[in-house]
Amino acid sequence: MLLTVNNLSVSFGGVHALNLDHFSVGEKELRVIIGPNGAGKSTLLDIICGKTRADSGEVTFKGKQILGKNEVTIAEMGIGRKFQKPSIFPELTVYDNLLLAVKTKKDIFSTLFFRVTPAIADRIHSVAMRLQLNGVMYKLAGALAHGQKQWLEIAIVMLQDPTLMLIDEPAAGMSDEETEKTGGLLLELAKTHSIIVIEHDMKFIEQIANNLVTVLVRGKRLMEGTFDEVKNDQRVIDCYLGRSNAQLETL
């Protein structure tokens, strides 16, 4: 397993945000996490990428413990994160946004004397082409439309070339056509990377969920299964529709 989470627990001000017994993602697996608001989906990604500290439990990545490591070390180990609200550099051009992301040496001296090699230029160009950013390369990133900002952040994560991508609501604010394109891209990326995607859009999930879907409810794992299993599970339907269900109450 590439990523393994055991007995992870986090609480904010006495409220249990996450209380996860087990969760794991394998090599080149595309995992979708769903769950109602406040289920702890984003919190889980926050812990994996080092944004939030966990109270207890263990998270191992490539066999190494990552709890307690800072976000830079975790990023260096090969975990890339796309946030729910697009997090890009609005005052830099799209090209510069991408240039900063490219996987190279990232210490002070390397950046001070950095020259764009043809290989790097090609890489930026090909990623930009795939995400249809090549037409806006010299625009300020802050001036992009919301959907384009989403794609720019995905492009930033792609250029980092992480082993594991954490993608938080990639389809939010996108048109149907853009959503489908994003889905296709994620499926293609999943051939070479492990990806965890958080989503609400059921149509989108149906498109991308080629493997397991994990359902989180109130910080706990309700179930894990294929898209069809999850879709037809009475507990999942009930918790989404807010219906009371005896099995949910005991969770």
């Binding site: 944004k51 830079v72 997090s87 002070i108 001070l112």
Partner: peptide
């Protein structure tokens, strides 16, 4: 300095320091 990639990292820190960290730059050093 400002034209180099180093300078771009500085501007990126101004825009969104957390993004720079998650892109694997040690912002403290910069």
């Amino acid at each position: 300095i400002t034209r180099s990639k180093f300078g771009k990292v500085l501007q990126a820190i101004r825009d969104s320091e957390s993004r720079v960290s998650y892109t694997a730059y040690h912002t403290v050093n910069f």
